[in-house]
Nucleic acid binder design. Structure first.
Length: 289
DNA sequence: TTCTTTGTTCCGGA
DNA sequence: GTCCGGAACAAAGA
C-alpha cells in the first residue's frame, strides 16, 4: 500500500537507474489496469529516452523526450522492478507466461538500453500507467486538484488554519483529503494521529492551535523518517529491487488492534473502528476525545 | 462463498 | 449550491 514515502523511494530508484536510458521495445502483457492502456498509443514510446523521474503526491512522472510523460500510480499493489543482465528474474526465464506465477502480474515490460528492463507488476490492478504530454501534465484531472506536498513549506500552520475555516470534517478525513494535503494514505494518517494524541473522529473545529502545529510537525517527521528507512511495507510495498521497506516494525497503531499502546506509561489498548469505509486504529486511552 | 484491502467517484441528506 | 459521509467499484487471494 504505497503512500508518499514509498513512492518517493521508488522515484529515487527509478531516477538513479533509468535516467538517460532509451526504450528499445515495449511489451504489453495485459492492458487492463485501472484504465485500459491503448496498446497503439503506448508503442509510441519506443525509441524515446527517459530524461527524468519526478513525484507528485503518490504519482510517478516518468519523463521522456519529445514532450511525453508516463504518469503512473501504484494503486494498492503496483510495483516497478528494474532488471539488469545480472538479475535473477531474467536468468529464470526470458519469456513471459501467464502460466508461470512469477510473471503472472507483470503487465508491462519496457526493454531499455544497456540490457535493462523495467517491469510494471500489479496483483490487484488498481494502479495505472498513462501516456500524456509533458507540457499538460500538471493540468490533468489526476494532478490539478492536489493540495500541497506535506514536506514543503507550503504545508504549515497558517495553511491548515485557513483551510479548515467553516469545515466540519473529522481530523482523520481531513488528513485523508488529497485536496488538503497530498500523498497521505490510511496508514500514515493513523500514525500521525497517534503521535498527535488525537482521536480520528475529533472534529477539526475542536482542535486547538498547538495541536494543529503538532500535525504539521509530526506529519513531516514521520514521512521523512520513513523515506530515510526505505519506505514502509505492510506486505505489498517493495522497492524496485523487490526488497520490502523496513519501516513496518515501527507502526504504533496500524494493524495493532487489541495490542497494548506503545506510549510510555499509557497502558491503553489499540482499537479499530471504521470511518468512511476505512479502518482507523487508535489508542482508546491516550487518543481519547 | 465471503471477506478484505485503498483511492476515487458517485449519490443522497443536511 | 455546497459540504460531508457512506456506499460502490476495481481484482484477486485467503
Amino acid at each position: 500500500m504505497p503512500e508518499l514515502p514509498e513512492v518517493e523511494v521508488v522515484k529515487k530508484s527509478l531516477e538513479n537507474k533509468l535516467k538517460n536510458l532509451t526504450i528499445k521495445r515495449v511489451f504489453i502483457n495485459n492492458n487492463k489496469l485501472r484504465y485500459k492502456i491503448s496498446n497503439r498509443q503506448f508503442y509510441r514510446i519506443k525509441g524515446k529516452k527517459i530524461t527524468s523521474v519526478k513525484r507528485r503526491s503518490k504519482y510517478l512522472l516518468i519523463n521522456l523526450n519529445e514532450d511525453l510523460t508516463i504518469l503512473a500510480h501504484l494503486g494498492m499493489t503496483g510495483k516497478f522492478f528494474i532488471i539488469d543482465k545480472n538479475s535473477k528474474k531474467q536468468k529464470t526465464s526470458f519469456y513471459y507466461s501467464i502460466k508461470k506465477n512469477e510473471f503472472k502480474h507483470d503487465h508491462i515490460t519496457l526493454f531499455l538500453s544497456k540490457g535493462f528492463k523495467l517491469i510494471y507488476n500489479d496483483v490487484r490492478k488498481f494502479g495505472f500507467l498513462k501516456l500524456l504530454r509533458t507540457k499538460n501534465i500538471f493540468t490533468t484531472d489526476h494532478l490539478k486538484f492536489l493540495g500541497p506536498e506535506p514536506l514543503t513549506n507550503e504545508f504549515n500552520l497558517k495553511y491548515i488554519t485557513k483551510f479548515i475555516i467553516n469545515k466540519k470534517v473529522t481530523i482523520k478525513n481531513l488528513l485523508m483529503n488529497q485536496k488538503f494535503v497530498s500523498g497521505l494514505g490510511n496508514i500514515y494518517c493513523n500514525e500521525i494521529l497517534f503521535l498527535c494524541k488525537l482521536n480520528p473522529l475529533k472534529n477539526v473545529e475542536k482542535i486547538n492551535k498547538k495541536e494543529l502545529a503538532n500535525i504539521v510537525k509530526f506529519t513531516k517527521k514521520i514521512l521523512k523518517a520513513s523515506i530515510v528507512k526505505g519506505g514502509s511495507s505492510i506486505k505489498d510495498f517493495a522497492n524496485t529491487e523487490g526488497k520490502n521497506g523496513n519501516f513496518q516494525q515501527k507502526f504504533n497503531v496500524y494493524n495493532r488492534e487489541k495490542s497494548k499502546c506503545n506510549r510510555k506509561n499509557c497502558l491503553g489498548i489499540i482499537r479499530k473502528i471504521y470511518t468512511s469505509n476505512r479502518s482507523s486504529f487508535f489508542c482508546s486511552r491516550c487518543q481519547n476525545k
